[in-house]
Amino acid sequence: MPALRELQQALADAIFTREPARFAARVRSTGLPGAARLQVYQNNVFISLAQALADVYPVVERLVGEEFFHQSARAFIRRCPSRSGNLHDFGRELAMFLRGLPDARHLPYLGDVAALEWAYHEVFHAADAAPLDVERLAQVSEDAQDRLRFRLHPATRLVASGFPVLAIWEANLGDEPPGAQIDLDAGADYLLVARRDLDRVVQRLTQGEFALLAEIAGGATLARACDRATAADPATDIEAAVRRFVADRTIAGFHHF
């Protein structure tokens, strides 16, 4: 192996395993011991990655407390390391990680709150899109309608949970202590996370509306998405829902290849 690659692997390993002694002998100790010098990089790496997580997941941090959050962050950084030079890409798997964390079992909704926060983060950075061309949509011929597929705006995410995660999230966004008690048995949440102009919103959907958008997001034809929405909730007013999602730009395009 080329010496440079070997060195990079050895240093990265020493930093991730938090065992600087393994690399210290390869570092000059003039003025300050090699181990202390490695410690600076170790601190920088873990502090900046943990800070990136704290920036994306303020509510998770508030729910578990700062100390538990940072302890979990250090474990997460090693288990699901950053795979991108863009720090905004880091932390996608935190919901999954928290769901499998034995010490967090007393907060069964924690993973779902993390999923909501990740969606909220992604929607901040997602691309812009022009609104759907309603006149072109009206011109789609009847025999092409079977193949009609809508496209969601890139800044759109769907989050479903068996817990009232929206109420939990809203109650923990600010610094003030949460007001009313949240009833964990209040029922499931079907949420749309989206951008309206520059601002992010989280909206509650019916189960039928959620199924409609989830099918569209998955690439289904409109016909199939309607079937699924009606199956999820027979009372779904599909036409009204589609009109609303086109008007608020949740649906931003279509094709009928």
Partner: peptide, 16 residues
Amino acid sequence: WSSVNGRYLNDLLPLP
């Protein structure tokens, strides 16, 4: 450099 084996440290590590 800031990555090796696909794992990023997202820090500016020195080269030899």
